[in-house]
């Protein structure tokens, strides 16, 4: 009761003082920066032709490829990103801060640079790409696997950082309690550690997936722009802007809807865990 009354009093004080007009005006402009582009996009939507546009080969191919590659990248991120987060959070080793720095670099690095770096490492003439190609015949650039790799490179840091933070904040004594109850290390991980960081894990997964879905720079640099093989939704938008604006708008609308859905899901349940 006491704290509630305090809140009411504080509100009364806030109402009594008028905020500076300039601040409100600047905030309004700030909001407009985000809002106007969406209004522009929505105003161009060809609503009557929309079903037909969405059913075109270009859109269907891009949508399918985007779903497959972004989900595959998320899966890869879970398989190797969660162990990486665990090692960073739990093991003391020389150069750990260097490793952590390298893992977070893609968050700030221009994706095009990431794509170029992938090309130099894994391209046909790349450091690892060349021997890999000679040994197995595998060629990553300009392939769907290349898209997954580029997506993973750019998006996985979101998962690693979120999960590492959660592992650090987890009370280790719970894991000790689990092992005293007879649980081996894998059982502890599966039945105690991962469930206890569950909300952060899910938040990291959704962020990773959303980032992979929107990936453009690294993908086009490393994997190119081949319809049905490497042309994801963002790439298709880019191409369509040159040829058929209505298709570009339809594709953009699909991505806005998907992004909004992700945001809503995060808001509802997992935003607090970040």
């Amino acid at each position: 009761m006491g704290s509630r009354r305090l809140t009411i009093e504080r509100r009364a004080v806030e109402r009594a003082r008028r905020p500076p007009v300039l601040l409100i005006v600047l905030a309004g402009i700030g909001f407009a920066v985000f809002a106007v582009p969406f209004i522009g996009l929505i105003s161009r939507v060809p609503w009557t032709d929309l079903p037909e546009l969405l059913a075109s080969d270009l859109v269907i191919d891009a949508l399918r490829l985007s779903m497959v590659t972004s989900l595959a990248a998320t899966l890869v991120a879970v398989l190797i990103g969660v162990p990486l987060a665990w090692v960073l959070a739990r093991l003391e080793f020389p150069g750990r801060s260097l490793v952590r720095g390298l893992v977070t670099l893609p968050l700030v690095l221009p994706p095009v640079v990431g794509g170029a770096a992938l090309l130099f490492a894994l391209g046909r003439r790349g450091l690892i790409g060349e021997p890999l190609n000679q040994a197995t015949g595998l060629l990553l650039p300009f392939s769907t696997s290349g898209v997954v790799l580029a997506n993973t490179f750019v998006a996985m840091p979101f998962l690693v950082i979120t999960v590492e933070g959660a592992l650090r904040n987890l009370d280790h004594r719970y894991e000790g309690a689990a092992s005293s109850l007879g649980a081996g290390q894998w059982t502890v991980l599966r039945r105690v550690t991962l469930p206890m960081i569950g909300p952060s894990l899910v938040a990291g997964l959704v962020l990773t997936w959303a980032r992979a879905l929107g990936e453009f720079g690294a993908t086009i640099t490393f994997a190119g722009n081949l319809q049905g093989r490497t042309q994801t939704l963002p790439l298709a938008v880019f191409v369509a802007l040159e040829s058929d604006r209505d298709v570009a708008v339809a594709l953009s609308l699909v991505m806005v809807v998907v992004s909004l859905a992700v945001l809503l899901v995060l808001r509802e349940r997992w935003w607090k865990a970040l």
Partner: peptide, 8 residues
């Protein structure tokens, strides 16, 4: 503090 697993 008992350390009961909060998710179970």
């Amino acid at each position: 503090d008992y350390l009961l697993f909060p998710h179970l």
